[in-house]
């Protein structure tokens, strides 16, 4: 009963917000990759990087969520459907094991553009982790 409902969350900061996504969606975390800007793209598209011969679009999670651009960033490479993307996030935190039954829906006052990017909130003893909805984020 307990085993299938456990979820491993990789957590990281976007600005002040502690965010989490299912660790199975993350392929790898890169530190210093050189990003080539693509002029004329959406403002939250930071550019493209070369990941071992594949061209990946990198988006700034701060700008994507409508916050400030992230600082001292690293790239989370996430796989979604058959495309891989880089997400630029702030500091990386630990992996948190969450019971999927204890994930609460996002607070109703978190609505608008920002709200639709979150699919839930998980509360640990000390912190509150906002679960990102990859599907909405990666939608064009």
């Amino acid at each position: 009963m307990a085993a299938p409902s456990l979820l491993e969350l990789a957590t990281f900061y976007v600005g002040e917000t502690l965010c989490g996504i299912d660790i199975l969606n993350i392929q790898e975390i890169n530190n210093h990759t050189e990003i080539t800007p693509v002029h004329g793209s959406d403002n939250w598209v930071k550019g493209v990087i070369n990941l071992r011969g594949r061209i990946l679009t990198v988006m700034d999670m701060g700008l994507r969520l409508g916050l400030l651009p992230v600082k001292d960033s690293r790239t989370l490479v996430v796989g979604y459907e058959d495309e891989h993307l880089g997400l630029l996030v702030g500091e990386i935190e630990e992996v948190v094991i969450a019971d999927s039954l204890k994930i609460e829906p996002p607070p109703p006052n978190l609505n608008g553009a920002q709200g639709r990017f979150f699919k839930g909130v998980f509360k640990t003893d000390t912190k509150l982790i906002a679960l990102l909805d990859l599907k909405t984020i990666l939608e064009t």
């Binding site: 050189e34 080539t36 693509v38 004329g40 793209s41 959406d42 598209v45 550019g47 493209v48 990087i49 070369n50 011969g53 594949r54 061209i55 990946l56 679009t57 988006m59 495309e83 993307l85 990666l138 064009t140």
Partner: peptide
């Protein structure tokens, strides 16, 4: 020649991307 991702299909002016000798991407 390498294709650009789904999020960049709206960007006109680029036919794709390539990787240069130093590992950086050029459009």
């Amino acid at each position: 020649v390498k294709p650009l991702g789904r999020h960049l299909t709206g960007c006109k002016g680029y036919a794709g991307a390539t990787i240069m000798g130093d590992g950086r991407v050029a459009l």
